[in-house]
Design a protein around this nucleic acid. Structure first.
Lengths: 201, 201, 201, 201
DNA sequence: TATGAATGAGTATTCATTCAT
DNA sequence: CATGAATGAATACTCATTCAT
């Protein structure tokens, strides 16, 4: 009778735990020993669950993708106006800024580590993004793809600045700043909608 | 191989050449041998000009910062309306998207490699950014810092999406897309200005 | 999997099964996991029957020694002339060539793994060999030790060439070749006996 | 100006030095650290000259093959009778027994490490052996291939016994024994030739 | 008894760095 | 100045062995 462990469940726990580590030091700079130590296991155990460092990273990227927005729409509030819906989305982003920062950093790493020939991995990411964009468009009830792209671009930029904000000692670009910028963006979208209303579906 | 007598000038050439290499593989993943090979010199030569791998990277980051917008304002067109100025800025960004992609990737790497205790390095970056923001505000003649931040956020998001666009095989997020999003942003800013005009200085 | 109650009997079965594995990959190159897998058991089980990898190997070597010629003389035909007896011996060798190949390989490995200080192990082997040589001399009724040595040398050389014969694609050094060489050797021994007859005991 | 080293020459020196090490401990059991230490260099240097452990081993095997009998025929004495030529060959073998022991051990290892699919390596060995056998036949002026094979088999067996002789503490199977067995073999060959003379070419 | 998860020292290999030429 | 050979600590990964179940 073997030691009873839910292999797959434990693997995902390790994956979850390694997110912080990869995000903080980067794929190329973190070592397996550091990961093992950070997770509180031995290197041997790590290799019992993952065949290689690359595999941990790739599985982590995939795991993250699956959590992405599903968690938002599980708690998304009913909202009748575009403004309310935008507020809900941005509130969610601001609230999970920390998480998105890590995801962003991981993706940049991912693109450095991946050669264009790794079609499998890249194709997977593409699907996730397309789906995310679609879900967002549906929730916001926006039909203009360019407008959805605009929102995505803005969110990405916001997250990136949040990463950079580590530079500003007293955190002048903290949650308040994220909120302020979000409001600015929402106002702009609303004005834009007023002037160039969406065709009704 | 031209005989370069000016030690410092050669150092900057090497720095310039190493940008592609660091951007493509990441600080932690690239090796000194790969850098040397990519630059067409021996590792010995590399160490003749730089004391360490970290030093190359840090000098590169600084070097990039100095080129930043100075090159833009050296060629910035006279522009009397806000729209013209925004168009000029965004045209410049789109035109140099490739370069900004590399810079973005380098910065993300930089934040992973840097501990908050490296005050020197971080303080330096902060100054550069503040200066950049200031110069941008001056050129656009915008007094609301939130609005300048908004533009910077948008540009960052745009560049990030451009990096991600490697995923889309036929490059559906190419220069045309950058241009489209830029126009959308400019329109929004202009509408916003109409409704909430800047206090005149 | 039959339930084997006899601990010792099962241990010998495992030993028997591990012969192929050690012979094919070598003591230093095979892993406990490979052995376990090859035997169809878990590593835990392996360690239940043997205290260490080295122990499996050493027990295997000893086990092989005990099977050595006992199995031959259990089936050795009555033979009145030297020629008949030589034919019987060589027929046995050729028939069991595969087995002797494995044994040879194991011994070479044994000498690499054993330091001269492991007197116990080495002394054991020596006894086995002396006994083997004695039994062979008795059966063949040869009194000249040099002649017995000669036969042993020849047999060893034959087996070694059989191992090497893996090189020759279409197996030109197969059983037929072993037989041919055996006949040549037997003829030589017989001629030699004619010219230098053994003193009768 | 690089450090001046005859790369290829030094590589062969290292190869030469690693023979003892591989022969004593076996391919699978020796470590790169041990090899490096045994050669008096660092592991880094080892990898500067060889891409992998396997490569050292394979190059060593090839290197040994090339030295094989060429060194004998470089010093082979003129000899008019078959006996003289046999004496010369066996004297050479006995004199270089140590070397042939190492070679034998290496080859056994080689066959364990090599899969039948490594055609390149195996084909190479085959050629060397065929050439060796041919050269030996020419020197001895023996036209019967079976007889040449017999001699080769005997030599191999002799060397193998010499390896085993480590078991016998006081070296009762030393050079004297090798000589005695050689004489026995030579006498047998000569008698055989008397009774079954070679067809004259 | 049997299993296979867990361990951490050890393995092959790499890499930043040094230094003789 | 420039080279690339040399170094050895560090890296990704493996393996004999242990032990909870």
């Amino acid at each position: 009778m073997p030691k009873i462990v839910d292999h797959d469940r434990y693997r995902k726990e390790l994956l979850q735990g390694s997110l912080d580590l990869f995000a903080e030091r980067g794929y190329g700079s973190i070592t397996m020993r550091q990961i093992a130590k950070g997770l509180g296991v031995s290197t041997g155990t790590l290799y019992h669950y993952f065949p290689s460092k690359e595999s941990i990273f790739m599985q982590l990227v995939q795991e993250l993708c699956e959590q992405d927005i599903s968690s938002f729409f599980a708690q998304a509030p009913e909202a009748h106006t575009l403004e309310e819906r935008l507020q809900a989305v941005m509130a969610f982003v601001v609230q999970n800024a920390q998480f998105y920062c890590q995801q962003l950093v991981l993706w940049v790493d991912f693109f450095q580590q991946t050669s264009p020939s790794d079609e499998g991995e890249i194709h997977f990411l593409r699907q996730v993004w397309d789906r995310t964009r679609g879900t967002l468009a549906d929730y916001l009830q926006l039909t203009d793809p360019a407008l959805v792209d605009f929102i995505v671009v803005f969110i990405d930029g916001l997250i990136l600045q949040h990463i950079y904000s580590r530079v500003y000692e007293q955190g002048s670009k903290d949650t308040a700043w994220l909120h302020q910028q979000s409001q600015l963006m929402i106002r702009m979208i609303l004005h834009h909608e007023q002037n160039f209303p969406q065709p009704q579906t």
